[in-house]
């Protein structure tokens, strides 16, 4: 069934594509106006994206299965993209360089497109099964995905660090490290909060706050990788490539926690996000 929110989110996806192209044009013709219009579009799309999510929420009530849109793979992908856009706006003031915003928006575009195109992703609104009927669901999902979005930005700056050539629009290495660290400063506490709230939820739903289900185990591995990042930087004083490498590994672990575990390993979590 085609619902209003599917249309809104469809337009959102297209606008992300426009934002991406606006960045490309900016890099080619080097006119500020294109970067500025990209930012206007980012703000506009953040609004549109939010509206789309709210409509899905609202429409779930009209279908008599009312619940916040955080409960299956489709909804989590849409929310992940929203978090990416949110982080881009949050970090704009001091740390946003066009290359970083371009790749972040590309990430948001990718997850939106994956959500709407992949046949493996069920777009319909489903009712909440008993295990998900908990207020912990909301805070758990929100904290986890904000951290994932922050880690995406850390990943992008880590990858850009390895760009060998000098490029006028490439931020200098020190700035890239700074962006990397700043995004982990948001991501790490959020991931910790996500894991802890997940544990509290598991206590109420399954009777045990930790059961070494694959998703839990992998989120712990991810958490340890980012703890390694912080220790390498602050205790060992590591800088440069080694640090960038850890942030890349961290995000790969995030991706595996998010997707790999769902598709490869099965566990208590795999029905949902």
């Amino acid at each position: 069934m085609e619902l209003i929110h599917h249309k809104i989110l469809g337009i959102t996806t297209i606008v992300y594509l426009f934002i991406f192209f606006a960045h490309i044009v900016y890099f080619v013709v080097k006119k500020e106006i294109f970067l500025r219009s990209a930012w206007v579009l980012i703000y506009f799309n953040f609004f549109l994206h939010t509206t789309g999510i709210l409509f899905r929420w609202f429409e779930s009530y009209t279908l008599k299965m009312g619940h916040a849109p955080f409960s299956n793979l489709y909804e989590s992908l849409i929310f992940f993209s929203w978090c990416i856009c949110f982080m881009v706006i949050l970090m704009k003031k001091r740390f946003m360089y066009p290359l970083i915003s371009m790749f972040s928006i590309l990430g948001a575009l990718f997850f939106m497109a994956y959500a709407s195109i992949s046949p493996g992703v069920d777009k319909s609104i489903q009712p909440l099964i008993p295990a998900l009927q908990s207020n912990w669901l909301h805070i758990h999902v929100i904290t986890c995905f904000i951290s994932y979005a922050a880690f995406l930005i850390s990943f992008i700056s880590g990858m850009l660090y390895f760009m060998g050539f000098r490029w006028a629009v490439l931020p200098d290495k020190e700035t890239l490290e700074e962006i990397n660290y700043k995004s982990i400063m948001v991501g790490f506490p959020m991931l910790s909060a996500g894991i802890l709230t997940g544990a509290v939820w598991a206590h109420y739903a399954w009777g045990s706050y930790w059961s070494w289900d694959p998703k839990e185990t992998w989120s712990l591995i991810t958490w340890i990788i980012y703890a390694l990042f912080l220790h390498a930087r602050f205790v060992r004083g590591w800088r440069g490539k080694k640090i960038a490498f850890i942030s890349i590994m961290g995000f790969l672990s995030v991706l595996f926690t998010y997707f790999g575990v769902n598709f490869i390993l099965s566990g208590l979590h795999s029905y949902a996000t």
């Binding site: 008993p130 295990a131 009927q133 109420y204 399954w206 009777g207």
Partner: peptide, 15 residues
């Protein structure tokens, strides 16, 4: 589910 009973140190869950 998500609403266990806690009595005398025992938690009793719907499973």
């Amino acid at each position: 589910v998500n609403n266990p009973l806690n009595y005398k140190g025992l938690n009793i869950y719907q499973s």
